[in-house]
Nucleic acid binder design. Structure first.
Lengths: 213, 213
DNA sequence: AGTATAAACGTACGGCGTAAAGAATAACGA
DNA sequence: TCGTTATTCTTTACGCCGTACGTTTATACT
């Protein structure tokens, strides 16, 4: 009955990811995406209910790129590898990365790393509740790190400006001396090292959740 | 020389925050915001170069709401109070909260809590680099928790769907058993308790950075 | 071959951010 | 006091967005 579809969800999502990588999120419009696929904007609506669904599909594509570590390497190393892989994927697709924070894994491929992580935690003695708790904390930390990093959040940190009028500059240094002192350090540090540091702190803390033997 | 302005940045930013709180981010358009201020959309452009600047101003408003703890309570308690206050503020303005992640504190009022935090860390013996590192990790964790929480990221977690065709449901349970087992726990937990848990883990880990005596 | 049906297309609508140009207003120098 | 001038505000309009709606096209089955 159906005409053989020239388009399909997969191809559209992949094209959307390509547009994102090459031109950024603001270039990802339905018309532009359709153009890249040599079709019309409305044709996309045969495969997705709306634009958000396209973005969701892109997120699943990204999540599927996260590697599921092999079993038998311990829960700490499993957690480390998953979070590192997630970070690698998001830095590979910086414009698409925010989507990972907006859509949880849903497809089997996208859930592969979750399954591997959960399994490793359960095998190590974490009960389901603690497993969820640990996963939550690790995800929150990783997403936050990503958000901060991609947003160039700490970049430059030009210190405060005078309230409104034309007060002299030095007043800033007098009001916020410690911001002035520490601020430059925020932009200077090595992101990967910072990430690993926080990751290790969390893993260490999580060990306390295990029934000690 | 200048006509006495009916509008000013502060009033506009406050009106924008009110719109955000009442109607959400998609309702915050220049036209709608102007309507609330009984003026025209273009009048706003005398006070802000573009819409993003309005959002930035709202972010500064939110950041200024974060309470700076008093000195003398120790760096751990200082960190805890700042992060708790930040969380309280963002949960009070859920629609506006993502802005906090997009714009770093810039105005003196918005930097007050940063100054208090930095000062406390420095007084406790953290050098500027370690202070920046600790701040980074705490902010990343808090922003990530927020992102996950506001996005209802873990809500429902309906497990995976069959690839495409009409495969039977039970196959999902067979492919991702641990996701099925742990998944429900993700939505069920107490967000505040989860937040405090991760916060304490981080603070404990940060103690290792101090020159032990 | 005929027909049902899903896919693709074209057009159109309301709304967005904001550029541009003119009108209105308040503070200042004379 | 009265232009002069710097600023705020208003009006109009442009190009773009997502997508509702109706039509055309191309397949697969009878």
């Amino acid at each position: 009955m159906p005409r053989k579809a020239r388009l399909n969800e997969r191809a559209i999502a992949e094209a959307a990811l390509a547009v994102l990588d090459a031109e950024g999120i603001e270039a990802l419009t339905m018309r532009h995406l359709a153009e890249k696929l040599s079709t019309s904007a409305m044709a996309l609506y045969n495969h997705f209910p709306d634009k958000d669904a396209v973005l969701e599909a892109v997120a699943q594509l990204l999540l599927a790129e996260i590697e599921a570590p092999p079993p038998g390497i311990g829960w700490q190393e499993t957690a480390r590898r998953i979070m590192r892989s997630a970070r690698t994927v998001t830095l590979r697709h910086p414009h698409a990365a925010p989507l990972i924070a907006r859509f949880p894994p849903r497809t089997p491929d996208a859930l592969a790393f979750v399954e591997a992580g959960f399994r490793s935690f359960r095998a190590a003695g974490f009960d389901p509740h603690s497993t969820a708790r640990a996963y939550r904390a690790l995800v929150a930390y990783s997403l936050g790190t990503l958000e901060v990093e991609l947003g160039a959040y700490f970049a430059a940190h030009p210190a405060a400006q005078a309230p409104a009028g034309s007060l002299d500059q030095p007043s800033v240094g007098r009001l916020l001396p410690t911001v002035d002192e520490v601020g430059p350090e925020l932009a200077a540090s090595d992101p990967q090292a910072e990430f690993e540091f926080g990751l290790n702190v969390l893993i260490t803390g999580l060990e306390a959740l295990l029934p000690h033997r």
